[in-house]
């Protein structure tokens, strides 16, 4: 869980930074896309790197979800009888929403891939025209809203996931707990804000 989560987090952060190129302009964003597809071309051929990344990410997603499902099933097996009176869990919003948040994120990723990568759900849907794809997609309020909901779910997911991953990897947080918490919140807020900025910009007409 921790390792796959870490890989996915690295991807998410890169993805978010790349998205911000939209504010530089269409040429910058599309150029970045072209560069990505041609990365390590001499060794791997065109799209080689992208395909490797896709396979690795897909594997991580699959393992991440499998582990989550296993943990959830173990949890249900470990408590077959529920309490009649249960005070809400103290662990905080982030800890409580890991599972449902994860489901929302997973559904969004499927949609997002069909929308932006495969292009079948995109009004524009032309490979290489990333800028136009994005503006076309977020031009529809419901697509932008779905994206924003998923991104809002992603924030707490990252926040709790980061702390949990440190714990799983055996890092005692101890007195540094506040620092770790602050860093986790910082990363979560940055990623959320970064991702939110794009649909918001399209909706408000800042980017068109």
């Amino acid at each position: 869980m921790a390792v796959t989560g870490a890989v996915l987090l690295v991807f998410v952060v890169t993805h978010m930074l790349a998205n911000l190129k939209i504010f530089v302009g269409a040429t910058a964003l599309d150029g970045y896309g072209r560069w990505l597809h041609s990365l390590a071309e001499p060794a791997l051929g065109h799209d080689g790197f992208v395909w490797i990344a896709r396979v690795v990410l897909l594997l991580c997603v699959a393992l991440h979800i499998t582990a989550a499902v296993q943990l959830t099933r173990r949890a249900h097996r470990a408590r077959p009888f529920r309490y009649r009176h249960r005070r809400p869990v103290l662990g905080g919003y982030a800890a409580r929403t890991m599972r449902w948040g994860g489901v929302v994120i997973a559904l969004f990723v499927v949609y997002h891939v069909l929308d932006m990568t495969v292009g079948v759900l995109n009004p524009n849907g032309i490979a290489g025209q990333d800028y136009r794809d994005i503006t076309a997609s977020f031009g529809r309020w419901y697509a932008a809203a779905f994206t924003m909901i998923a991104v809002l779910a992603l924030g707490p997911h990252i926040r709790h996931g980061l702390c949990g991953a440190l714990r799983s990897l055996g890092v005692p947080i101890g007195r540094g707990r506040r620092v770790v918490d602050a860093v986790a919140i910082g990363v979560a807020v940055t990623v959320t804000a970064g991702f939110l900025s794009v649909p918001l910009a399209v909706l408000t007409g800042m980017v068109r």
Binding site: V89, G91, G92, C163, R167, S168
Partner: peptide, 14 residues
């Protein structure tokens, strides 16, 4: 023994 796995919820320590 059938105990669940830890997901760092922190209820235990609370």
């Amino acid at each position: 023994l059938g105990f669940g796995g830890c997901t760092s919820m922190g209820e235990c320590t609370a």
